[in-house]
């Protein structure tokens, strides 16, 4: 894990770094508050040891800026303080610091407090990750997908790049559940997730959108490239043979694909992929349809699409 030490004194930095070296941590140093903020933004450390008194930017100011930044606010902060004042310590804790260590620090105590803060951070990260995963398929859930889409959309717009969105829906999934039971239906959904995981690039984000519907965000890809991915997934799904009771479940899936070219809203991207998916269903299922302007008027209520 990565720990950032922020202190205006190189003497303290060297000492803290030496003290934490044995903890098997990636220790970074920043001399002063301004550099501390810069390194926090760039490195996203798992823990910050923050000196209170720094001439360029005080520890309080650094803490306040970090805690008010949604991207950085969850990073735990331990104040390092040579101050005896209870008010200073209380103020630091009230601002969101998880702990403080008095300088000169006792080597054993510093290491123990760092270990404790990192233990809590690991648990928080785990909980945070769990909250973003679909428990059945272990793909990202819809909420995580929406957060990531918002970020990718902003990044894509900033760099004038392109972004593709793919939607996949299992054909006649209700019939699978009705015929083989819900546990078998769950196995089909897990198999779908596996197909997506195998076929997606590392930079893609596959999620369970809801029910038997899945989605993939493809940063840097256009709808042509996304259609290739969709076609590979469609073929894989078609090849699936899942044993159930004394029979074999075979399923197919339909795909709708769109990209962000010429779009001003990410909602339009979702609507386009959704409309293309509906078109795929209407044209007979088990196919990939790329959004084209002629599809625009064919959108129907979601419940008709399965």
């Amino acid at each position: 894990m990565k720990v950032l030490i922020v202190d205006d004194s190189p003497v303290t930095l060297a000492l803290a770094q030496a003290r934490l070296r044995d903890e098997n941590l990636d220790v970074l140093c920043a001399q002063g508050g301004v550099e501390g903020l810069e390194k926090t933004r760039k490195e996203h450390p798992d823990l910050i040891l923050l000196d209170l008194k720094m001439p360029d930017l005080s520890g309080y100011e650094v803490c306040e800026r970090i805690k008010s930044d949604p991207e950085l606010g969850s990073i735990p902060i331990i104040f390092l303080t040579a101050s005896d004042s209870v008010e200073d310590k209380v103020k630091g804790l009230d601002m969101g610091a998880v702990d403080y260590v008095a300088k000169p620090f006792d080597p054993v105590e510093l290491s123990a407090r760092v270990r404790a803060a990192l233990r809590v951070k690991r648990l928080q990260d785990l909980l945070n990750l769990r909250a973003q995963l679909d428990p059945l398929t272990e793909l990202w859930n819809r909420q995580a997908m929406e957060t990531r889409l918002r970020q990718e959309w902003a990044r894509t717009s900033r760099h004038e790049e392109v972004l593709a969105f793919l939607m996949m829906d299992v054909d006649h999934f209700k019939k699978v559940n009705d015929t083989y039971g819900h546990p078998a239906g769950d196995r089909v959904l897990c198999a779908m997730a596996h197909v997506l995981t195998v076929q997606c690039r590392e930079s893609d984000l596959a999620c369970r959108y809801g029910g038997e519907e899945f989605a993939v965000i493809l940063p840097g890809a256009d709808s042509h490239e996304a259609a290739h991915l969709a076609e590979r997934c469609r073929e894989d799904v078609e090849q699936l043979a899942l044993p159930a009771q004394d029979r074999v479940i075979r399923v197919t899936a339909s795909f709708g694909v769109a990209d962000s070219k010429d779009l001003v809203s990410r909602d339009d991207l979702l609507h386009h992929a959704d409309a293309a998916l509906y078109r795929a269903k209407r044209e007979g299922r088990n196919r990939v349809i790329v959004w084209e302007p002629y599809i625009a008027d064919t959108t129907v209520p979601r419940e008709v699409t399965s």
């Binding site: 003497v11 303290t12 390092l80 040579a82 300088k103 000169p104």
Partner: peptide
């Protein structure tokens, strides 16, 4: 204050 914070640590 700076020396106070570092001395004991070293």
């Amino acid at each position: 204050h700076q020396i106070k914070g570092a001395g004991g640590g070293y």
